[in-house]
Structure formats: C-alpha cells, structure tokens
C-alpha cells in the first residue's frame, strides 16, 4: 500500500487506547470526503443565482471521488460513492442517474489503477481525469439529447467538463492538506 499508510511514524508499538471518542473521531475523519460531496451538493442547490452552480456540483463530486479513491480508498468506499451520487442526483436537475453512473465509473477507474496513479505525477493524473470528465459530460449530453429527441447544443456539457477540469488542481491542494490533517483517521 503506497498511499494508505502515509503516516508511518504513527504505526509504532505504542498505539493510542481505542476509546469510543477516538472511534467516533476516526469515523468522522474517514467520512470527511463523502460529507464534503454531500454538503457541497446541498449548498450548491440553494438558489444563489451563481452561474455554473449545477456544473460545480458535478465537478466537486468528480474531483473528490477521483482523488480519494486512489489516495485513500478506505475513506471513499464504493457504497459511500453510491450514497454521495444519490444525494447529488436528488439535489440536481439533470438527467437522472448520469452523475451517479459517472461517479461510479470514475471510482472504478481510479480505484483499479490506484497504485499506478499514486506513482504518476500530478499532471499525468490530471490529464487522465480530464479525459474521464469530458467523457462523463459527453455521456450526460447524449442522454439529454436522447430524452429531448433532438440534437441540443453541446456547449453546457463542454462548460461542465472545463469547470470540472479547472477546479481539480485547487481541490487537489485542499485534499492533499486534508489527507495529512483533518481527514486523516490515523491522527485521531
């Protein structure tokens, strides 16, 4: 395991005593990524009138699942991805199921290649993520067209893909810091 035991200095012979409070703390830290997706999905469904709110919901969910699935899979199990996807689905108004399916597919890719991705540099990871984000947006656009029985403009889909790709670096910086600190169950 490359990414999961990122804090080797804590794995000493002297482990802290397992209390209820510590178990709760660990669970909260492990659930941080999922809670982040759910909280941002609900927050971004409020009528703020900010342009690109719905696209941001999708982008944040995609980036979070991608990052945590390869860097700490224990914090982002498949069931959690499914639940997060359901919450995003409920609080968004796109074609049903597409965000959920995209999240599960990107989770599968990221989780399956987690060793390779951990060794790859940031740029290469970003590039692969970008291709997946474009594919997911294209899939959404195709479903919307199928539902409307018309060839609709692909511009909103492209905007969503661009936004998702664009927020990835800043979110990654946040997650890298969080993986060491507030979302690290080993520090409980």
């Amino acid at each position: 395991m490359v990414a999961e035991n990122s804090t080797p200095h804590l794995h000493s012979a002297v482990e802290p005593k397992q209390t209820f409070r510590r178990a709760l703390d660990m669970a909260a830290r492990a659930a941080m990524p999922s809670l982040f997706i759910m909280f941002s999905a609900i927050l971004l469904s409020a009528p703020f009138g900010i342009p690109g709110q719905a696209q941001l919901q999708f982008g944040i969910a995609m980036c979070t699942v991608w990052f945590w699935a390869y860097s700490r899979p224990r914090s982002m199990p498949a069931l959690a991805v499914f639940l997060c996807g359901l919450v995003v689905e409920i609080f968004s108004f796109g074609p049903p199921g597409t965000v959920l399916l995209s999240l599960l597919v990107i989770y599968g890719v990221s989780h399956h290649w987690r060793y390779g991705l951990s060794r790859l540099g940031f740029i290469a990871g970003w590039l692969i993520f970008s291709i997946l984000a474009v594919l997911a947006s294209f899939f959404q656009w195709a479903l919307v067209c199928l539902h409307a029985v018309a060839l609709l403009s692909p511009v909103p889909g492209l905007f969503q893909a661009a936004l998702t790709i664009g927020i990835y670096p800043s979110l990654t910086a946040l997650f890298v810091w969080g993986r060491r600190t507030f979302a690290n169950p080993d520090q409980a």
Binding site: P96, G97, L101
Partner: peptide
C-alpha cells in the same frame, strides 16, 4: 452498484 445506476438512468 453500477447496475443500479444504469437502472436509475433507465428509470429516468
């Protein structure tokens, strides 16, 4: 889970 998601897409 992916099958369930596809089911949700079809339901939609």
């Amino acid at each position: 889970l992916i099958l369930l998601a596809v089911g949700l897409v079809l339901l939609g």
